[in-house]
Design a protein around this nucleic acid. Sequence first.
DNA 1: GTCTATACCGAGATAGAC
DNA 2: GTCTATCTCGGTATAGAC
Lengths: 195, 195
Amino acid sequence: MSSTSMVEKIEKAALPLFARKGFEGTSLTQIAKSVGIKKPSLYAHFDSKEDLFLGMLQKVNSDYRDFLKERVQKNRNMKTEQQLYCLLKDNATYLKNEDLGLLFKRFMLFPSLKVNDTYNEQFIESEKALTEVLIEIVKEGKRIGDIQVKEEQVIDAYLCLLDGSFEQLFYYSEVEYEERLKNAWSIFWNGIKGC
Amino acid sequence: MSSTSMVEKIEKAALPLFARKGFEGTSLTQIAKSVGIKKPSLYAHFDSKEDLFLGMLQKVNSDYRDFLKERVQKNRNMKTEQQLYCLLKDNATYLKNEDLGLLFKRFMLFPSLKVNDTYNEQFIESEKALTEVLIEIVKEGKRIGDIQVKEEQVIDAYLCLLDGSFEQLFYYSEVEYEERLKNAWSIFWNGIKGC
DNA sequence: GTCTATACCGAGATAGAC
DNA sequence: GTCTATCTCGGTATAGAC
């Protein structure tokens, strides 16, 4: 629990392993090897495997929430359509970093399957943060008349769009993903505007 | 590899375990216990853990494709809107069986992370089957004038809707899910009809 | 076909020298 | 802080009696 630099090195090495193979699927031997030290040396910096993992989760999630805040602030003056589209794209861009994205995907889609609930709370918090941001944008959009449909409908449809595009982020190549997202978005916005 | 009845019993016991905890997360001891026999007895029916798992995957996937065919056939004479909505709902209903749904979810969302590619091929095949069905419906819908927007747009948006709703199937309670899906669908269909 | 006993391995974690 | 050596546990899989 000392030497900050080494802790960071270990977490950085552990991230892609946990993201790709999950908690149980990743061994301390693999992590140590990736760092370039021996397995028992890890215990000079972390109390247990779970300790390592949980610390990493916390960092990843607080980073994500910071990113979210910063982006929303930056897009504050755009039109409603642009704000919503940017939120969708920014989210994808951030999570397109494979390690981060896979980690989020894994622990948002398979909650309650793990030992400790503290694992999931981190991601639920991040999800809440995103939803709150969305609600703000939609409310303002309705107020100024950019959105005609009922607020609840917009929220539900948008979240579905976001979840779906998040999944597809990993199926398809980057160019194919962009094309698909553009198409899905245009249908969505078409449906939002009302006639 | 004999006594068909016992093989089925074992697979039936293994399904919820693999679905909830994954391949590595499930032990043969757990499976044996759930069946009511001892661990080594499993080897009278399967060559290995992988053998058991793969056989189960194959069965699950062929069942799913049969279900898909049957449903599409049944809805053949409905209007385009109803066909698309039913496909969405039927898919959800089928996968709402938690064991099946979780298994699909796990192995469709985390492909290429496993030992053997044969695992994933099963699910990719199932996914293809669904896409082909969708394309047929949309093509016919365009032909008879129920759909105005470009075919590709409809496909992309629909798949995004389906993926998103599939994800949400596990987040929310049944009633909340229904409500959300209804909202997302109405925005989607709104966007499809054109103005 | 099912059992007990066991081989073998790799996991997480600890002790203690340096 | 890092290492070697070691402990304990639970995993897959096999041998061989019944």
